[in-house]
Amino acid sequence: MEYLSLVHLKEGDTCKVARIQAGSSATRRLYEMGFNTGARLKVLKNDRGPMIVGLGGHKVALGRGLAAKMLVGRA
């Protein structure tokens, strides 16, 4: 299974969280906000500035730096 970074996905793409390679507190925060292993995401916005992803029907804005550290697999 090949993983890629969330920032490379396009608007409308869906994926599953595989691994987060950010610092430990940021990683934990993301996990606790629902970006845990296997969580399904939908990319709602990816142009410039933070990305917006849909997660469980809700929207979360994620800085690009952080999104780059989130590895996802195709859902």
Partner: peptide, 12 residues
């Protein structure tokens, strides 16, 4: 120090 990450919920 590092630039802080932006994580923010966008409520309906």
């Amino acid at each position: 120090g590092e630039v802080s990450h932006f994580i923010m919920e966008l409520p309906p």
